[in-house]
Design a binder for these strands. Structure first.
Lengths: 130, 130
DNA sequence: ATAGCTGCAAATGCTTTGCAAGGCC
DNA sequence: GGCCTTGCAAAGCATTTGCAGCTAT
């Protein structure tokens, strides 16, 4: 029935009412970019009775399990991304919206004499504004 | 005499003792990447008697004047960069150090069908780890 | 039964701010 | 002198944590 319950179990996370209903908000509508504040608001709108602390805990748990990615845009709030595949972002400054860019649509060539050690990740954000 | 005093005046910032001495730490040693905490520590080491609040105020003033750039690495602290030219970054995760990459050493091609509006800036951070 | 989770409130960590005292033009 | 800046302490915000009570297994 509920597929997400199994995903939680697979990651050794108990499928509590709160996790399942927040998971529904996060993963049932395609790729999303969300903050703890937005998630709490949407949860309230659906009368889910989830505390703000639990929203933070759940986001951290999902992130640790690899179900969410973090995106650094500004220093104020943490954004979470339901797309955990390698990709880049466009940030629409007017609406504070994030849009995914597939690595196929962008070509980055770094002169590798600059890199020492292992590349762990490459973060790219194009900030646009009309 | 003190060249930085004139720079401050040009930006309508009064050349107070605090601004001039923090400016010396920031701009007299080539390009630097620094947080409010690091700057306060270095200021203390030189017995400058600058309060933490003033460190924050000065960083904000310099940033607003275009003398410093901000770099988003993590959500915890704000990094400031004395290099305000367009460029990219390598973040050394082991030492939490930032290294500049010149735009000449990296080639980014974005399929421009993806971009609507004006590109305000392109932020790229390569996180390495050995 | 019990290990894990939730909710509340308090604590934390970075940063900002109000206001009185001091410094620059 | 007058306005800007500083310093201190308090406030602000996003986030984390301690702990008692609850829930999934």
């Amino acid at each position: 029935m509920n597929n997400f319950v199994n995903i939680l179990r697979k990651h050794k996370l108990r499928p509590t009412k709160q996790r399942v209903s927040l998971g529904k908000i996060l993963f049932d509508k395609g790729n999303r970019h969300i903050t703890a504040e937005i998630l709490k608001n949407e949860s309230d709108k659906e009368n889910l009775k989830v505390s703000q602390a639990t929203v933070y805990n759940v986001l951290n748990d999902f992130y640790s399990a690899g179900l969410l990615a973090k995106v650094n845009i500004d220093d104020d709030k943490t954004w979470y991304d339901t797309n955990v595949e390698h990709h880049y972002h466009i940030f629409l400054e007017n609406s504070s919206e994030l849009v995914d860019i597939s690595p196929d649509d962008i070509d980055i060539k770094i002169s590798n004499k600059l890199i020492t050690g292992q590349i762990r990740r490459v973060d790219l954000v194009v900030k646009v504004n009309d």
